[in-house]
Design a protein around this nucleic acid. Sequence first.
DNA 1: AACATGGTCAACCGCCTAAGC
DNA 2: TGCTTAGGCGGTTGACCATGT
Length: 396
Amino acid sequence: MGRAPCCNVLGLRKGAWTPEEDQKLLSYIQQHGEGGWRFLPQKAGLMRCGKSCRLRWANYLRPDIKRGEFSPEEEQTIIKLHAVLGNRWSTIAKNLPRRTDNEIKNHWNTRLKKRLIEMGKYLDHDHPNESRPCSTITTTQLVNNPIDQPKAQRSTNDSTTTTTSAHLLNEIAASTKLKLSNCLASFLARHGGGGGDKRVAVSNSASVLNMVATTYRKPKSHACLIDAVKEVLSKSSQACSEEIDHGNENVIANSSNADNSSCSISISDLEISNNNSSDMGSPSPKSKNGQESRYVHSATSPRAVVLNGIASKLALVKRCRSTLLSSTDWRASSHVSSSEFVDDSHDAAGSAVLMPVSPSSDERFLFQDMGFDPLELFFEGIVSATDEFDTNTFSW
DNA sequence: AACATGGTCAACCGCCTAAGC
DNA sequence: TGCTTAGGCGGTTGACCATGT
């Protein structure tokens, strides 16, 4: 039981607001501005608690609120953001100008959710083991509009457990609009991402990461791949100061033109093989109810494992953090739990610890290939001092 | 016409976090 | 450093309305 509700004071009105009350609140805020909700009712002559006043203002009286039917575009935005963010209505609302989180929540619960259930395309964030294909949205799902993916196809991943990098890369994919350079665009074209479609030039990080993951299985394209990985990660980092682009949904939708259904491996797939990897030092993550997770054992290449491990470690970097969830404490969010965040760094008791870890030799070579500064990696906690890593010279 | 049922949405509740002291 | 509290968030409730029987 938390604090007693502020509206329990005897004599305060509850329930629907009358036009007279609305007028009092409106005129008071127009005169004195928002804030100071605790004493506002008294000053405005309202027999309401401050919280009730704030809610009434925020959800109904504010002049910049758009009311009425949601457009198909708005609905698509909600569906796509909900697939990525879950029930974080306030975050979703920030991407729908002039709509309130309450209105979006109501619209989702009364219409969109039902519609998706009827279509068999509902991804249940509340009960992930019941109807959701996996514990997070894979990049493949992002690339192929999640609501367009057949249920039967999704059910093949039912026992998939995805952790740190999958979540983080999905967040990047969702929040970052990449405008590809000629280099990366040609990379995608060469490796099947574009298929001659000019729209590949405005792709998204989800498809890029899928392409990278796919191509990473082909050793001969190593050099090209490294350039691509560097570009994806640097673009994601650059985006940390940008607000989530309202064009996300268009970008994601456009990318569905790429033929990812057959050739791409999702970040989830990478994660699965990561869990099987001994050199990553990852203990088997447990689900939130403490039960041991089951894994799908896929034949993913060691290179993909390394890539995934690096993505996971890079996610620790501060600049990436701010990219992932620019406006919320993403480590405390329901979507990315703190234990998932430090999945590669659990202590013996399974509690979360933030410890720099030593990269495997494969990772170290790829870090070097990618041109990362060992000094920077050390100070950002991605590597720790070991026999191999000399903190005097900051080199391997 | 009366009642039952279901949908919608404004408002409330409990909890959390950050800021202020 | 710990406590208090305003503000914010997401889940839930219940009044109201439309439709069906």
